[in-house]
Design a binder for these strands. Sequence first.
RNA 1: GGUCCGUUAGCUCAGCUGGAUAGAGCGCUGCCCUCCGAAGGCAGAGGCCAGAGGUUCGAAUCCUCUACGGACCGCCA
Length: 577
Amino acid sequence: MNVFADIRALVMACLDTLETAGTLPGGLNRAAITVEPPRDAAHGDMATNAAMVLAKPAKMNPRAIAEALAAELAKDDRVTVAEVAGPGFLNMRLAADVWGGVIKAALTNADYGRSTLGQNKKMMVEYVSANPTGPLHVGHTRGAVFGDALASLLDYAGYDVTREYYINDGGAQVDVLARSVYLRYLEAHGQEVAFEDGTYPGDYLIPVGEALKDKVGDAYVGKGEQFWLEDVREYATEAMMSLIRDDLASLGIEMDNFYSEKGLYGSGRIEDAIQTLDQKGLIYRGTLEPPKGKLPEDWEPREQTLFKSTEYGDDVDRPVQKSDGAWTYFAPDIAYHYDKVERGFDALIDVFGADHGGYVKRMKAAVAALSDEKVPLDIKLTQLVKLYKNGEPFKMSKRAGTFVTLRDVVDQVGSDVTRFHMLTRKNDAPLDFDFDKVTEQSKDNPVFYVQYAHARINSVLRKAEVPVDDATLAGADLSLAAHEAELKVAKTLAEWPRLVEIAAKGHEPHRIAFYLYDLASDFHGLWNRGNDDTSLRFLQEGDKATTQAKIALIRAVQVVLASGLGILGVTPAEEMR
RNA sequence: GGUCCGUUAGCUCAGCUGGAUAGAGCGCUGCCCUCCGAAGGCAGAGGCCAGAGGUUCGAAUCCUCUACGGACCGCCA
């Protein structure tokens, strides 16, 4: 049940009728027609711009079209009033039982709002993909939460979603990791070691070094890298991935798949991908112009193998091979995305940190080239998280190893608060995260406000002296809960399915969080009006039928709150403590 | 020098891909709390949507330029 879709269909049907009757010319492009709730509720429940959009191509006066359409719309039982306003807007008021139908839909179908928009298309969301060189930090947390909520949202909107993590275990950084673990290993053997530049000094490697000692004894002590590097690298990477999996689990995130970069080397897949590009005439030997602005000290022109990404909108062509013939980081990335395309995904989404912004164009170019522009790739960048404590900026230094980890955050404020708060901002805007504010129990804190609404409804359900199972509530006479303030809540509920689709289309899970806040606000507002107007209280002593109708309304609110929180990965609170 | 993102109330931010008189919270001002849970409630003030052009019936939203802020910019990952 989606009121907006229903009314849109009605408008289209009425236009058909007008065309058949010859009132309107046929074959008009209707793509620009919208059927939306007007911003100002005083204008009605639903508005369409159809008359204005069609006026020009039909060579007719917009008001004339609007009036004809209004007459047609008014014939439908659901439309009580259809009137023309302003330059040609058509405003409609809908019958009260339309809103009652919304409440019943939510009560009889736990999946009210779930959409078939995605038509089961295969969609991959790649997120986190942090280097396996240490625990996840706050920056990763935002990407993790965003990617996970986006994946859930798309699933809810009817896509067949795969969540994947790309393990960058093929580059130089895992050698650095291995050397760092080796130092901890020596330390475990009682040696004094120094962590110089180019090593990871973090404490989290101490247990890894010790575990390595337990495993291989002193076999690697005093030996050159050629004896231990490969082995230690594998061991350390595995240990880091285990750490990362645990970090993700603490936020309730479970990947469907972990994809190893290293697995691409030696498999011929990189060569395949580059060859595919080559066959399209997109690979050549050449020398790049020096980068503008601050030039690296040791810059000199060198001939490399380049991908003609400029063919697909990039600013310069990008190297896939270094001057010594080794692959650049970009090459396995191309191969990885080629693999995604070959696995048959209909659309791809990558979630990157803002520092990878420079990567967007070339990656899109690669996917466009490899899929013959058939598989769209959307790249969502998550901006920085600024940490605060007691209102003061919270400094962290990666060099000193004092960065704030995902675990620090989750341990302190909990998974639910972390997730919800990080989704109360658009992904491409910076986010403030204040350890004190996010756990504050007040109206100022959206996390609390939404949770409180859910818990508060529970409280009413507990106190009710009438049956409150959904089946019974769905049979309530909802005309007993049709006060203007109650209808407002029902109207917000009616927007839920539409909002899900809007959020899914835009890949914008934050819209869910904002919607939930609005819904909670409507509910709390209704509650508060009960303070002055006792007829608006949910529990009407001695009047079972009315009580049931009102409870049906708020139970429907609870169902939608739970669905929305579910998408965000937040557990609905049963009670507040 | 270039690319990407941002700029909306004193502050923090929404704004449903072009709709009608621009929205919320905080803060501020004024009232209110015996009442299903007041970890509050109601009302009010507060805006040249960074600036200038353009596109059209109509622009915070789309295009161009400018200003400011952030991220990034060979063979690093």
